[in-house]
Design a protein around this nucleic acid. Structure first.
Lengths: 221, 221
DNA sequence: TGTACATCAGTGAACGCGCGTTCACTGATGTAC
DNA sequence: TGTACATCAGTGAACGCGCGTTCACTGATGTAC
């Protein structure tokens, strides 16, 4: 054996990570195979011994966000403990954080690539859907519905799931819109507004929410 | 004068509309000048007597959504009466409707092109921001906050604005995510969930909300 | 009225460029004998 | 131990293609005289 076992897997991982960063920043069509391979420390010729085509890589890149059990790649540097009981507020806070807003390269693909995926094929859409389902599932588990059952929204299984879905859509939508605006102050305001409402939807404490608002405006989160 | 006055404006409008449909469907980079001009019944050569470059056209296309005072291009075929007092629920219902979900060509640019815009320059982002501000403004005017002032969210000017911003982000996010998913049933479920929560945020009646749910599931809206 | 000319929106061939993809080759390493 | 060979990850020149952009040209119409 000329190369160590696992060598190919390691190189393939480097290519995927390079592609992930570049796709997040520039979109699928504005990134060339040359750039991806250069980002992995290689040259273009080797690409096709690892992937069938550029589209093939695209699907794999989107999928890797889901297969990563820790979702680390989404919010690198933001601590989220999935085993914690208040994982919901943690996820919302991390998702709508200034860090996630600014770190485009390591962003959640739902924020960086939604319109690209909606124009793509089945594989890309399935990967996107899996990421969204995972987010909804995490939020649903930590929804606080006590005392809110009377409003008919969060009172049963269907309602809990619906509220979790909407909360996830609110987080994704808030970030997507914030990233597409020119005025930074309005983008910050929007993130805060979405965080407040997401906390209300989740039934999480107002203190948490107020803490978030301060954190967003001072840039600490 | 060889051609009638207004001829150039009319032709320019045709090019912009052709570009709008094509950009919405395929994104900026996957549409060629040839295709745009063909869609307007012309050939490529004439393009540069109307626009400085393809990017120039892009900014103009995004801007035209905002300058259109009726937002007709966003929800063609869905009736929204901006003078009506319950314009809020109307906008939410139209925005999250099956028609808007399916009619990609005539879609709101915030749903069809958000990640493209976030990678674009100042002009595109300003146009996007203007569309979002217009939507927030419409929603804010028809928020019902009576009886909700005690919760501290919608009790003052800042709160009303924040709730309107979050409601808009929820509508945009719900549609963006729905379009990027593979499973149509889950996309429908998500639209319904977002509509219910948006109605709750707006303080609009539950009957309206229930009506929406039926409409979504039967495809009537 | 008729002829020559001016105007200008639109045409389509051509240019240069970058991209996705292919493929003959390199060169470092392990193996056979 | 030494020599010839096999393996294969990675290289980089080359191909074909489509794109954005340019430009000399066309042809329909109005105007001058």
């Amino acid at each position: 054996m000329v190369y160590a076992a696992g060598h190919r897997d390691e190189v393939k991982g480097k290519i995927v990570q390079s592609a992930r960063r570049l796709f997040n920043r520039h979109g699928f069509d504005n990134v060339s195979v040359d750039q991806i391979m250069a980002g992995a420390g290689l040259t273009r010729g080797g690409f096709y011994s690892y992937f069938e085509s550029k589209s093939d890589l695209y699907a794999e890149v989107l999928g890797c966000f889901f297969t990563d059990p820790e979702w680390k790649s989404c919010w690198e540097g933001v601590e989220v403990d999935l085993a914690s009981t208040d994982v919901g507020p943690q996820v919302v806070r991390a998702y709508l954080s200034r860090q996630h807003f600014e770190d485009v390269e390591n962003s959640c693909p739902m924020v960086a690539l939604p319109s690209d995926v909606s124009r793509s094929g089945e594989r890309a859409k399935c990967a996107f859907e899996a990421v969204f389902k995972a987010m909804v599932s995490v939020l649903e588990r930590s929804l606080v519905t006590d005392g809110r059952t009377s409003d008919g929204l969060a009172g049963n299984g269907r309602g809990r799931h619906a509220v979790a879905q909407a909360t996830a859509a609110l987080c994704v939508g808030g970030m997507v819109v914030a990233r597409a605006m020119e005025n930074r102050a309005i983008a910050d305001e929007l993130r805060t507004a979405c965080m407040d409402v997401a906390f209300e939807l989740g039934g999480w404490t107002r203190q948490e929410s107020a803490k978030n608002r301060r954190a967003v405006s001072t840039g600490a989160v």
